[in-house]
Amino acid sequence: MTLKEKIHKACVEIVQQKINVLQKNLHELSDSAGNETKRTAGDKHETALAMLQIEQENNSRQLKEALQQKATLEKLDPHLKTETVVRGSLVHTNKGIFYISLGLGKLKADNETFFAVSPDAPLGKLLLMKKAGDAFQFNNTSYEILSVE
């Protein structure tokens, strides 16, 4: 398995863990709401039920976002080889390794530290369509692209 494949797999696993936690939370909140409706009515009951509903809505929104992230990752081909930086590229620079995929931040795979960067983020936009040997500035730092996978 190549480094790019390991990095892609690490990103998928992180998003899947997030999905699992959110699904578990939603299940627990649903159980709590069911138990809350069995209690007697009153202001405390109404407030608790409203709080549970808000929490469920927040978890549902986060779950939807995580599922969209997973779908985005599934569209990326870790075997794709290009000379220019596109979605799914692994970019080696003099300042680190960047996987153009999702904004997941600093991660580790195969004892390598890398940054999962969204192509819509400022740094991701700067990297797109660049190739090995290109240089650019970002936040007063000079970057040189060493290779693109």
Results as ranks from 00 to 15, higher is better:
E112C: 05
A116T: 06
L90G: 04
T113I: 13
K95V: 03
V91P: 01
M129V: 01
T82F: 02
F115A: 02
F98I: 09
P78S: 07
K130H: 12
V91I: 13
M129E: 15
A121N: 12
P78N: 05
K70A: 12
L90E: 06
K106T: 14
G105S: 09
A132K: 14
L76V: 08
G96K: 11
M129C: 07
D134V: 05
A132S: 15
V86C: 01
E74C: 04
P119E: 15
V91Q: 01
K106M: 09
H92K: 13
T113R: 02
T141Y: 07
A121L: 02
N140H: 13
P122E: 12
D120V: 03
F136C: 10
K106N: 10
N111D: 15
H92W: 08
K70R: 14
L126H: 10
A132T: 09
A109R: 03
L80R: 14
L127R: 04
A116G: 13
H79L: 12
K125H: 04
D77M: 06
L73D: 08
N94P: 03
K106A: 05
E83Q: 13
A71G: 10
K95M: 12
V85R: 00
I100Y: 02
S142V: 00
M129P: 00
F115V: 11
A121G: 11
D110I: 03
L80V: 04
F138R: 08
K106W: 01
L107E: 10
T141A: 12
P78L: 02
R87M: 12
F98E: 06
D77P: 06
S101C: 11
L128P: 02
A109T: 08
A121H: 13
T141I: 13
V117E: 15
V85N: 00
S142C: 03
A121K: 04
K95R: 15
G96V: 09
N94Q: 06
K131S: 12
P122C: 09
L73F: 10
V117T: 15
L127H: 03
S118K: 07
F138Y: 15
N140M: 09
L104F: 06
T84D: 00
K125F: 01
M129Y: 13
P122V: 09
A132Y: 04
T141D: 13
Q69S: 13
L104M: 07
L90S: 03
Y99T: 09
R87A: 14
K95Y: 03
T72H: 07
A109Q: 05
G133F: 08
V91T: 10
G133V: 03
G96T: 10
A135H: 11
G105E: 11
E112S: 07
V91E: 02
S89N: 08
F114A: 08
L107Y: 05
N139S: 13
A116C: 11
A116V: 04
K108C: 01
H92D: 13
F115W: 14
N139D: 15
K131P: 00
G133I: 06
A121Y: 11
V85W: 00
N140V: 02
T113Q: 11
K125L: 09
L80F: 09
T93I: 08
K131Y: 02
N140R: 14
E83G: 03
L90N: 03
A71P: 03
T82Q: 11
N140E: 15
A71M: 07
T72L: 10
L128H: 01
A71I: 01
L128W: 00
T72G: 01
K70L: 15
K130M: 03
L80H: 11
N140D: 15
L104W: 08
N139P: 00
L104I: 03
P119G: 07
K81F: 10
S118N: 10
P119K: 04
